[in-house]
Write a protein that binds this DNA or RNA. Sequence first.
DNA 1: CGAGACTTTGACCGTAGTCAATTTATGTGG
DNA 2: CCACATAAATTGACTACGGTCAAAGTCTCG
Lengths: 265, 265
Amino acid sequence: MRIEDVAAAPPSRPIAALSVLAGQGSDIDRLRAFWRRVERFTAGAQVRLDGPRGGRRRVIVVSGWACEMRILQDGRRQIFGFMLPGDVIDERSTWSIGSRGVVALTRLEVVDADPGASSDASVRENMAEALCEAAIEREERLYDHLMRMGRLSARERVVHLLLELCERVERVGLLKGDTFRIPLTQEVFADALGLSVVHINRTMKQLRQEGSVVFKAGSVTLRERQKLAAMSHYRPLGPELAGARDRSATERRSNGGLADWAVLA
Amino acid sequence: MRIEDVAAAPPSRPIAALSVLAGQGSDIDRLRAFWRRVERFTAGAQVRLDGPRGGRRRVIVVSGWACEMRILQDGRRQIFGFMLPGDVIDERSTWSIGSRGVVALTRLEVVDADPGASSDASVRENMAEALCEAAIEREERLYDHLMRMGRLSARERVVHLLLELCERVERVGLLKGDTFRIPLTQEVFADALGLSVVHINRTMKQLRQEGSVVFKAGSVTLRERQKLAAMSHYRPLGPELAGARDRSATERRSNGGLADWAVLA
DNA sequence: CGAGACTTTGACCGTAGTCAATTTATGTGG
DNA sequence: CCACATAAATTGACTACGGTCAAAGTCTCG
């Protein structure tokens, strides 16, 4: 009952803009032909991807948001990252050593990422490459998240995360002007950023008063993204491997012996 | 000048126990035959792996420790993880988008992870599989690290990290009794765990006084690892994919609507 | 309209950060 | 083998960011 035919219930929004397929416009129609089944999950449900076959199954989110998380026995929770439309969910994330899981944050629709043997080679190839890039970018985001939690203040963390989400939302065409819908409760923010709900609330209040960030009814508006990026040390998710971006901009700090060299953020 | 022949300068310790090759004892001798070159880096040097060919090059650490890190313009540093003997260093980590880098924490010796076409198929196959598992485990460690930084207290973080390192050291046969050499300054701990040096110092002092952890001259001794694991929520790095460890032990918390299900740590 | 989830606020606490000075290694050249 | 220079570890005093507890206030939706 979780699985329905597209015929009976077509994906709730056009799936033309999937980040894994960004820049391959012309192939999408061919790909779409193979997405006959949409799997749905309700908000709060655990996303289990029991690939019948042994190999690791992957799906693409068509609509809705999900997150990857872990819970400690005493109730402390940590959210590792979010999956939004256009992102890939890997079966491995779904039950890896029983230590992590994926949870739907809203109603969620996903389609199989494997075009199947039926499609022609070029399609399969493009998809494979897209999936690979998506995996790389996902890992890149893990590092960003680590930096956030380890070295940024509460304000910076919130802004940094919002900028990341905004950019990802924009990439799949869901950003309207400088506003986007964001289905995250403050509790979710807290669990993602390693802060308490109360402190998230106060931080957001402060940002709101400064006018740089506006929260209203499940939507966020980011004015002056440039300024926000600067104050939170945000660096756009490069088009992966965007080449050796000025790798020379290494302002050497005489600081601790450890790093005579420097890697900028 | 960074590259020398093994003949002229053999690896400083037997490379029989490499975590990437754990459990493949019999093949190691054959593999070793292809490691003719050892690359060396001095403590504090950035590890650059400029693979001549386009593909991403990978090397295995034979001796010494390194870490993967990022630095913000204002000097804040975040260490993402450590590489110790037996671990793989991926070229990608080395200059990815100019945002991360690998730094040697001690004198460091690495050998190429690619057996080359010269070796026979079974060797290449085993190595490929080992590299893949290593990559998976590395990612797993990133999640652990995220959990540490997001939800553990200073005490817990320190203990949790020490347990991870201890386990990894043990796996490659460098644990003597319950003691191992650890070339990390308190500053490095601080940068890895998102704490200040001063607070690391105080936390360690406390642990020392409690007698559960002993620091002395570049070595650490962990008594009662079981107890330490419990107090820091440490869960051993499973033999990856160790199967669906009691996946049923999901003590449901009635807590926030988000997670009616639970993933233990 | 009522129940439950989510947000907001106040009062107060405590973990961890900052600054600065001192002590203890670790080396290195003489 | 000693003296000096430097990196690393410690410690004290004080601050502040962020956590906890508890009580309202708001929204949503059946």
